[in-house]
C-alpha cells in the first residue's frame, strides 16, 4: 500500500460500495457489482434515492475507518473500481429517476398539461363558432372534432354572464345562494355533467370519441344557446323565443347529432346517443329561458305562504309543455329546501 493510497476499510458487507476516492485501474468483480446495481434499479426511484443516500453515508464511514485495517494493495484497486462504477450507475439512475419524478410532478401540478388544448388562433375560433351552427350531412365518414377547450370555456363564461343578466332583469331572487353561484353552477354543471354522461353513453354505444372532444363538441354547441338567450332575454316575445329555440338551438343540436352519428356504428346506438343528447340540449335551453321564475315562485310559495307582496317582474305566460316539467322541477327544489 502506498502512502498516498486510499484508506483501507474493513471488508464487510456494508463496504461493498466503498472506495469512492480512488479511481483505479482494473477490477474483475465490477460485473458483479453491475448486477447488484441492476437488481436494485429494477425497483422504483425512491429506492435509488435511498441507496444514493446510503452510499454517501458509507463514504463518510469509510473516511473515518481509514487506516483502521490493513489489507492487500491490489484488492483496494478492485474495490475502487467497483465503487466508482457503482457510484456512476447509481448517480445515473438517480438522475433519471429524479427527472421522471419531476416530470410526473409537473404533469399534475403544472398547467402546461392543458396548454395544447388552448393552442388556437382567433381565426380558428371564429371558424369553429360558425361551424357549430352548420350541420354537415356526412355520416359515412367520421367527422373531425377539434380537441380544443378555449372556445368552449369562453362560451360557458359568456353563458354565465348572459344568465346573470337574465336573472337580474327578471328579478329572480335565489334564497340561500347568490345569483352568481347559481349561474356558474348551472352552466358548468351542464357542460361537464352532460359531457361526462354522453361520454359514458358513447363508451357504452361504442362511439369513437374522447372526453376532450366531447367537451369541445358540447361547448361549441352552447353557442346557439348564447345567441338565443342573449336575444330573448332582451326582447320579450314568446314567438321570437320559439323561433330561435327551433332554428338556432336546433341547428347547433343538429350539428352535434350529425357529428356523433358519423362516429357511431349501428342504428340503435345512434338513436340512443343522439336522442339523449338532442333532448338534453334542447330542454336545457327551455329550462334556462323559463326556469328561474318558476323556481322562485315555487320556493317562495312554500316558504312564505300566500301573504307575500307581489313581485315586480315582467309578466310572461308560461307555455303548457315546459310548465309541467318546470313545476316538477320547482317542487323538487322546493322540497329539498
Amino acid at each position: 500500500v502506498s502512502a498516498a493510497g486510499p484508506p483501507s476499510r474493513p471488508r464487510s458487507g456494508a463496504a461493498e460500495w466503498g472506495g469512492f476516492e480512488d479511481n483505479m485501474q482494473g477490477g474483475g468483480s465490477a460485473v458483479i457489482d453491475m448486477e447488484n446495481m441492476d437488481d436494485t434499479s429494477g425497483s422504483s426511484f425512491e429506492d435509488m434515492g435511498e441507496m444514493h443516500q446510503r452510499m454517501k453515508e458509507e463514504e463518510e464511514d469509510d473516511g473515518e475507518a481509514g487506516g483502521a485495517d490493513e489489507e492487500d494493495g491490489e484488492f483496494l484497486g478492485v474495490k475502487g473500481l467497483r465503487g466508482q462504477l457503482g457510484r456512476q450507475v447509481a448517480d445515473q439512475v438517480w438522475q433519471v429517476g429524479k427527472r421522471q419524478a419531476s416530470k410526473a410532478f409537473s404533469l399534475y401540478a403544472n398547467i402546461d398539461i392543458l396548454r395544447p388544448y388552448f393552442d388556437v388562433e382567433p381565426v380558428q375560433v371564429r371558424a369553429r363558432l360558425l361551424e357549430s351552427m352548420i350541420p354537415v350531412k356526412m355520416i359515412n365518414f367520421p367527422q373531425k372534432i377539434a380537441g380544443e377547450l378555449y372556445g368552449p370555456l369562453m362560451l360557458v363564461f359568456t353563458l354565465v354572464a348572459i344568465l346573470l343578466h337574465g336573472m337580474k332583469t327578471s328579478d329572480t331572487i335565489i334564497r340561500e345562494g347568490t345569483l352568481m353561484g347559481t349561474a356558474i353552477g348551472t352552466c358548468f354543471g351542464y357542460w361537464l355533467g352532460v359531457s361526462s354522461f354522453i361520454y359514458f353513453l358513447a363508451y357504452l354505444c361504442n362511439a369513437q370519441i374522447t372526453m376532450v372532444q366531447m367537451l369541445s363538441l358540447l361547448g361549441y354547441g352552447l353557442f346557439g344557446h348564447c345567441i338565443t338567450l342573449f336575444v330573448t332575454y332582451n326582447i320579450h316575445f314568446h314567438s321570437l323565443f320559439y323561433i330561435f329555440w327551433l332554428v338556432v338551438g336546433g341547428l347547433s343540436t343538429l350539428r352535434m347529432v350529425a357529428v356523433l352519428v358519423s362516429r357511431t356504428v349501428g342504428h340503435t346506438q345512434r338513436l340512443i346517443l343522439c336522442g339523449t343528447l338532442a333532448a338534453l340540449h334542447m330542454l336545457f335551453l327551455l329550462y334556462l329561458h323559463f326556469a328561474y321564475h318558476k323556481v322562485v315562485e315555487g320556493i317562495l310559495d312554500t316558504l312564505e305562504g300566500p301573504n307575500m307582496p307581489p313581485f315586480q317582474r315582467v309578466a310572461r305566460d308560461i307555455p303548457v309543455v315546459p310548465n309541467a316539467v318546470l313545476n316538477t322541477t320547482a317542487k323538487a327544489i322546493a322540497l329539498t329546501l
Binding site: 479511481n23 485501474q25 482494473g26 477490477g27 474483475g28 491490489e74 484497486g77 478492485v78 473500481l81 462504477l85
Partner: peptide, 26 residues
C-alpha cells in the same frame, strides 16, 4: 478471495481502462 479478485482485476484491466476518464474529476 483477495487473490481471486486481484487476478480477475488484472485480466479485466484493459477492458475498463478508459473508465477512469468518465468521471469528472476535480
Amino acid at each position: 478471495a483477495a487473490a481471486e479478485g486481484g487476478g480477475a482485476g488484472a485480466a479485466a484491466g484493459p477492458l475498463f481502462a478508459g473508465l477512469a476518464d468518465v468521471s469528472i474529476s476535480e
